Amino acid sequence: MPWPETAQPTPSLAAALCWLLAGLILEGLAVFHLLVTPELWAWRSLPLHLMAAPLLTAGLWQGIPVASRRPAAGLLLFLMMMVIWLPVVAPLGLALSLLPGLRRSGQRGERQWQPLAMPDLPFRAVALPDVEDPAIREGLASVLSSSHDHRRRQQAVLACRHLPRRQAIPILRQGLADSADDVRLLAYSMLSGIERDLDGRVQALVADIERQGDPDGNRAEALAALYSEYGYLQLAQGGTLRYLLEQATLRIDQALAARETAHRWLMLGRLCIALKHYPEAEAAFMECETLGMHDDDLAPYRAELAFTQRRFNDVHRQLARLSSAAASHPTLHPLVSYWQ
């Protein structure tokens, strides 16, 4: 429905014309006397002009819409000075040019309103039955690639909040190539939020090490894990990823220098595989075995190392060292079944 119009008094155009006509008649008489007896202009023309000025001012004031009569005192003074100092020209110019424009600007046309349904805003939570279900992840990717409704694609990107970061990031990267600005901006914002979180945690750990030291190497180990997470989450690629992995290697070396543990040697071995330093990775895994790491924890990474070096017989041998419980794990079971 249209907005209610504010009740305002309508200026009387007829009254304005009467005042203007009376004032112009006096101005005409003043001009006539000025032309006929110019030597008596101060006694004949000037009084008529001064008498016409209030009439013309009143006529102009009546013609201005009420909503435009602000400030009243200043507007009256302006009109009076214009009429006095520019006789005939000013009243006619204002009446023929300014007043019609002001009156048309005060008129409001009829508004046409179309009722719209409440939009499905993107901040509403999306309920997912099971974020570990691969069908859910594939379904979100399918919505992004095939749905023609940008709001559904936006909901699919927003639903990535409920997924583990490693599973959500490929879908968010897919959202960066979407045709809709809202979807691209939302995906970019969520990816930037993940990166800012990692950057903040790295900077906080570096500041703690500089301020308090790291005698037991725990902070260096945590910092190495954060650096390696950039690669795990696929947030960095190419030279940037290699630099971050090298920083992680330096930090885990610091942690090992403070105190050797099987877990730290395992992390070093995984970093060496990522950097393609295969002899160093094998040496790190040997240290893990020396420190008593169980085969269920070590054998999958040794199998990965053997596979990258194309030692396929060793892949089978390493996977055969897994216990029955580890071999039946949902993640490892397909791999073990293939290499049996």
Rank of each mutant, 00 (worst) to 15 (best):
L102F: 03
A283M: 04
A16P: 02
V315A: 00
W113R: 14
L198V: 12
G59D: 09
S147Q: 07
A156Q: 06
R219K: 13
A95M: 00
A225G: 07
E5T: 15
L35Y: 07
L256A: 09
G23M: 12
S179K: 15
L75G: 02
P119N: 12
L223W: 04
A22Y: 04
D133E: 05
R151H: 12
Q237P: 07
W339S: 02
P134L: 03
L185A: 07
A72Y: 10
E221N: 11
E132Q: 15
R321L: 12
P4V: 08
L275P: 03
M80L: 15
M51R: 08
D253C: 07
S147H: 13
A125C: 09
A117C: 07
L50G: 01
S337Q: 15
T10A: 11
M267C: 04
A283H: 08
L17D: 14
L121F: 12
C18W: 12
L268T: 02
R184F: 00
P91A: 06
A283N: 11
E287L: 00
Q309H: 02
L319W: 05
V88C: 06
R317A: 15
V157S: 02
I64K: 13
E132Y: 08
L29W: 13
R251T: 00
R311I: 08
R317P: 03
C160P: 00
I252M: 01
P38T: 08
R219C: 05
M82A: 12
A73H: 11
V131N: 04
H294W: 08
G238E: 07
D216F: 03
L176S: 07
P54K: 05
C288R: 10
L17A: 11
D197P: 10
D216W: 02
H316A: 14
Y278T: 06
L322C: 09
L226W: 03
H148G: 14
L99W: 09
C288K: 15
E229M: 10
E195P: 01
L223N: 10
E221F: 13
R173S: 00
Y227H: 12
G269L: 05
H49R: 12
S12Y: 08
I252F: 08
V36G: 05
D314V: 04
Q154N: 11
Q318Y: 14
R124P: 02
P164W: 02
A204Q: 14
P115G: 06
H148S: 15
L48H: 03
A220I: 01
Q167F: 05
M118L: 13
P134A: 10
D253M: 08
E246T: 11
Q234K: 13
D208T: 10
L186T: 05
A30Q: 06
P129M: 10
D120Y: 05
S189R: 13
V83G: 10
L319G: 03
P215T: 03
Y188F: 11
G93H: 13
M293S: 00
S323H: 03
L24S: 10
R219H: 04
L198C: 03
D182G: 00
G269I: 03
S147C: 14
C18Y: 12
W265G: 00
V31P: 07
P47A: 00
L128R: 06
Q309G: 01
V202I: 15
E110R: 14
L275H: 13
S337F: 08
D133V: 05
S192R: 12
D181R: 11
L256N: 06
W339K: 06
G193Y: 06
L121E: 07
